[in-house]
Simulated scan of single mutants.
Amino acid sequence: MSGYLVLQTDFGLVDGAVSAMHGVAHTVSDEIVVKDLTHEIPPYDIWVASYRLYQTVSYWKEGTVFVSVVDPGVGSDRRSIAVKTLDNHYIITPDNGSLSHILHYQGIAEVRQIDEVKSRLPHSEESHTFHGRDIYAYNGARLASGEITFEQLGSVIPVEDITTLPIVNAEIEGKILRGSIDVLDVRFGSLWTNIPSEFLHKENIRPGDSVQVTIFHKGKKVYQNILQFAKSFADVNVGEPLVYVNSLVNVGIAVNQDSFSDLYHIGTGTDWIVELRRAPKIIFE
């Protein structure tokens, strides 16, 4: 193991929940390094939790252990699982769809089901609402510290049996690049799509070109405009919209120093579809 444990939740930082998870981890081992991915996932939003893991996991060294707790079904019969990804990272999380993007884009090598009765923080048996502390942080720390192996976390279950959320694949149809608006660059309101930048290359769309952007919500057109494809926000005026390549090397849509999402009331998820195409040339006489 790498000795790193990375935590993600929807708990926020207004109370002691996250601190308790850190405390449990360090009680298991003072040798591990505990870091936070985010604790600002919108409450109960499994989709965003799944995306943030996809955004982050591959940038950590092999052997890093992630704990992701967005768990509206805590205390129910949903399973607690640990997975090993194809690139040798580990994630401990409820089996509720929070691994959808990791499975789809990066791949999972093996899944283990954690016994919530046996593998938990000692003396926590009467608590059924804080599995983030009692099961996930506890077992994440044991794994990160080398106290237990991945194989000791539980019995194998088939990868295809884990719960997943539907994901829309990006595609090129004719001259149209189509995909979903998966998530926001939260603080700035930019739209992050799943359309890879290589699609722009295939259509020979280069920085400085004009791109027609059309956005649909549940099949209804809600936005259409012609935007510049820019290398960076500084390439357009303040308040001007643009198409760019984000940090995951996918297409983003933004407004320089404003929130595209707020201005045009655009949301995220598979109900939100975006289409891009090279804009027709307009000749003024």
Rank of each mutant, 00 (worst) to 15 (best):
M1F: 11
L5V: 07
L7A: 05
D30S: 11
E40F: 15
V48K: 06
S50P: 03
K61I: 12
K61C: 03
T64N: 07
V70L: 06
D71L: 02
V74K: 09
G75C: 05
S76F: 13
S80R: 09
S80A: 15
Y90K: 00
I92N: 01
T93K: 00
D95C: 03
L99C: 06
Y105M: 03
Q106S: 11
Q106N: 08
G107R: 10
G107D: 14
G107E: 14
A109I: 00
D115I: 01
E116W: 03
V117S: 07
L121N: 05
P122M: 09
P122R: 04
R133S: 01
D134K: 03
I135N: 04
S145E: 08
G146V: 09
F150K: 06
E151P: 00
I157V: 15
T164W: 10
I167N: 05
N169G: 00
A170P: 11
I176F: 10
R178E: 13
R178C: 01
I181K: 01
V183Q: 05
D185S: 14
F188S: 02
S190F: 13
S190N: 15
S190Q: 10
I205P: 00
R206S: 11
D209Y: 14
S210G: 02
Q212P: 00
Q212H: 04
I215W: 06
K218Y: 03
G219K: 00
I226K: 14
N237L: 12
P241H: 09
V243S: 02
V245N: 06
N250K: 08
V251Q: 02
V255N: 01
Q257T: 07
S261L: 04
Y264H: 15
H265R: 10
D271N: 11
I273V: 15
K281M: 08
